[in-house]
Simulated scan of single mutants.
Amino acid sequence: MLTDMHIAVIGGDARQLEVIRKLIELDAKISLVGFDQLDHGFAGATKYQIHEVDFSQIDAIILPVRGVNHEGQIDTIFSNEKVYLKEEMLGSTPEYCTVYSGISNDYLNMLVQNTNRKLIQLFERDDVAIYNSIPTVEGTIMLAIQHTDFTIHGSNVAVLGLGRVGMSVARTFAALGANVKVGARKSQHLARITEMALTPFHLDRLANEISNIDICINTIPYQVLTANVISKMPSHSLIIDLASKPGGTDFRYAEKRGIKAMLAPSLPGIVAPKTAGQIVANVLCELLSEDLDKRKGNQP
């Protein structure tokens, strides 16, 4: 239980609703920011504007999956209020206050460093990323079906990267009957691709391996699908980029060539927000409970 723990949930999309429900079940005290247009209320949660929150009473801050942008602004799907997380806000919280975010960036890293607060990036955790790969894969299949005029079965698919998402994507598209090749750099990843009965190739050879690809799925968060690579792709190819913004694709050149390229970094929140929210909520509440137990253990 999270009784007596005061948590600020600031911004977010439909996934955060599952987080709020779980926190309420565990008897936490919740301050909501960025939810003023939400149709239904939550018993046990109070809506505030950001300037109304008494941060000196906040034990934990929960940010959306995307965290904050480079100016500190937080996405607020359920509000027109422009919400910013500022240093003076975080600095006024108790020293033990922990910030939870899906991902981070230079601004958020600077904020927690300057205020000496702890930051936990949920999507850096293997459990969250692996669970989250399930709705990601389903969303990728949905996009592939919607934006092609051929079946996945029998198509030539290239998956770039064999991380937690890349592995799930490659395995599932192969199970659907696609001819899957996977590009990676690490020798252990190339060995794992072979063990999975898929075709491995080193990313240094990407331009040579892309000439017969129908669907290219990128999971690498830096530009690998350069203009040179895209110039070798068939004009009917579909690029689905699952990497975090700005993705790993030269979208300008893809458009110039007439190749459909889509940046889709938040598929779980689009295709299965309830499941994606439950994944985040379950892990988050475990972490909050552990944090509360540690704090109580340190009390005289």
Results as ranks from 00 to 15, higher is better:
G297Y: 07
H40G: 09
A43C: 03
F55I: 00
R192A: 14
K294L: 14
G11Q: 08
A170G: 06
A144G: 13
Y222A: 09
E87K: 15
F173H: 01
Q49R: 14
R185V: 03
Y222L: 08
P64H: 11
P265Q: 04
K296G: 02
S155P: 07
A261S: 11
V83E: 04
T199G: 04
I220L: 14
T3I: 13
G183D: 03
H202E: 07
A191V: 11
L85W: 10
A184N: 03
S101F: 10
A144F: 03
K296N: 15
G297A: 14
I220K: 01
Q49T: 07
A175V: 00
G277A: 06
T172L: 02
D54E: 15
S289T: 11
D75Y: 09
N114C: 00
R171M: 12
F201N: 05
V159E: 01
I259V: 12
G67R: 03
E81F: 03
N228V: 06
T249V: 06
K186H: 14
H147L: 05
P265A: 04
P135W: 02
L242G: 02
K82Y: 06
D250F: 06
K245F: 11
Y96M: 10
K260E: 01
T76M: 09
Q188S: 15
F42G: 00
I210E: 00
T46V: 14
E81H: 11
Q113S: 12
F173Y: 10
V99F: 10
L90N: 02
G11T: 03
S104T: 12
V157P: 07
M5S: 07
